[in-house]
Simulated assay, not measured.
Amino acid sequence: MPNISIDQLANEITNAFREYTEDVTKAIEKKVDETAKEVLKETKVLAPKRTGEYARSFKITKEDGYGVTKRIIWNKKHYRRVHLLEFGHAKVNGGRVPAYPHLRPAYDKHAANLDDEIKEIIRNGG
């Protein structure tokens, strides 16, 4: 067995850990992107369509930081209208406008098992 110094051993361990971290990070980002695309697609299908403009204007925004991978699905043109359609709202002269849930059901359907998939990616090393 060859002799190896402590410094070389520490460098090799550091390099192996760095490779593992990079592989896991890339795999998690890929999985989050795939899930966000699925949620976006489902949201566009479930969104109310009078003219279709509302459904077409949903977009994905990436917010990545150190140790954070976040995707935000929002309506670029009609962002003020989303919560009114999603949850319903009161009418001016009384009564309520019915809710048309489209964003939350898509998120619940596709992102429900994302935590388990990320844990599996971490266990498998990417």
Rank of each mutant, 00 (worst) to 15 (best):
L46K: 13
E34N: 05
Y20L: 05
L40D: 08
G94K: 12
K109Q: 07
T25N: 11
P48E: 08
N113A: 11
T35S: 10
G126C: 13
I121L: 09
R81V: 09
A111K: 12
K70C: 01
A55K: 02
Y107F: 11
K109N: 13
Y20T: 08
I118P: 02
I28D: 01
G126L: 10
I4G: 11
T69A: 06
F87S: 08
I73D: 02
F58Q: 00
P101E: 01
A90S: 14
L46T: 05
R96F: 03
A112I: 03
I73A: 01
A36R: 00
R80P: 03
E12V: 07
R56W: 03
G126F: 10
K44P: 00
K41L: 11
H89R: 10
Y54W: 07
P105H: 03
R96G: 01
G95Y: 05
A47V: 05
G94T: 07
H102L: 00
K30Q: 11
E38Q: 15
A55V: 02
F17H: 09
E22K: 12
R96H: 03
V39S: 07
A99S: 07
T21M: 14
R50N: 07
R81K: 13
N93P: 01
Y66V: 14
I6C: 05
K44M: 07
K70Y: 03
P105Y: 09
D64V: 06
E22Y: 13
K62D: 15
E12P: 00
G94C: 04
E42C: 05
D33G: 03
E29P: 00
L114N: 03
G67I: 03
L103K: 04
V82M: 04
P101N: 01
G125D: 10
F87R: 05
Y66K: 15
Y79N: 10
K91H: 10
A27W: 10
G88F: 06
L46Y: 09
D33K: 01
A47C: 11
E86P: 04
I73G: 02
S5E: 03
L40A: 08
